Simulated assay, not measured.
Amino acid sequence: MSDTNGRPAADGYEISTDPSRIDAARVHHWLSTDAYWALGRSRETQDRAIAGSLNFGAYETASGAQVAYARVITDHATFAWLCDVYVDRSARGKGLGTALVTAVRDHLAPLGVRRILLATHDAHGVYEKIGFTSLDKPEQWMALHFPGEDTRGE
């Protein structure tokens, strides 16, 4: 698997897949209080999601502080679901969202993953810059929804 540790991002930032660098408390706070799709998500649920996923963090190079996060659910061979993409409000407008999703794409491409899916209400332009498009045949896709705390936006 390709290594994404220390990949340069926007000036003064780097992206890493090193799980030990993820600030789980910060990620939980961001998502549960400021991300429309995860408002109210419990810390226990978020910790399980992090543990079962491929995680990407963007960090200030100087301080090491985490400023952005993305999570990928994948089999590392054929399919991936990109979710929980979040950039701290203080770090927005610096290209970190684009850099983070580009790092996800570049990390998964050599593995032979054929499709990366995501859902968004308001960031289509960010993802289109990286190559994402609307589904060609949305009528072929289905979803099974369970009632619970995480059904607001994904």
Rank of each mutant, 00 (worst) to 15 (best):
E149I: 09
Y69E: 15
A38D: 04
R43V: 07
Y59S: 01
S20Q: 03
M142L: 04
F56T: 00
M142C: 13
A62K: 00
S53A: 13
L108E: 13
A99K: 03
D23I: 08
G153W: 01
N55T: 09
G131E: 03
A91H: 01
A68Y: 08
R92C: 13
T78S: 15
L117Q: 11
V104I: 04
T151W: 11
L82I: 09
G112A: 09
G112W: 07
E149C: 01
E44V: 09
R114Y: 11
I73Y: 06
G148R: 02
F79I: 15
A109Y: 12
D88K: 11
G95F: 00
R89I: 05
A68E: 11
Q66T: 04
S32K: 12
A25N: 12
T102V: 02
T102A: 15
V126C: 11
R152M: 13
S63P: 00
L96V: 10
L96F: 00
R105P: 04
D150M: 08
A68D: 10
R41Y: 13
A65D: 10
G93Y: 14
R48F: 01
L31H: 09
D84E: 11
V72D: 00
W37D: 08
R43P: 05
N55E: 06
R26C: 11
S42E: 01
A51H: 09
W37H: 02
R92S: 14
A25E: 13
H107Q: 12
R115P: 08
A123S: 13
A25M: 09
S20G: 08
T61N: 00
T61D: 00
R41S: 12
D34L: 06
G112I: 04
Q46L: 14
G40I: 07
A123Y: 04
A99N: 14
Q46V: 06
R48E: 01
Y59W: 13
C83E: 14
H76G: 02
G148P: 00
A99W: 03
E128M: 06
T45P: 04
Q140T: 11
P138K: 11
A62H: 02
A103Y: 05
K94Q: 08
S32V: 04
S42K: 12
V67M: 02
T74A: 09
F79V: 15
M142A: 15
V87N: 05
H124K: 15
C83G: 14
L96A: 12
I130D: 02
H76A: 11
D34W: 08
A119P: 11
R21S: 04
L100A: 02
I50M: 14
T102F: 00
S42D: 04
H107N: 07
E128S: 15
D84V: 03
V101Q: 09
A24E: 13
R89M: 07
T78Q: 13
V113A: 15
G40S: 01
G125S: 06
R26I: 09
A119L: 15
D150P: 01
A123K: 03
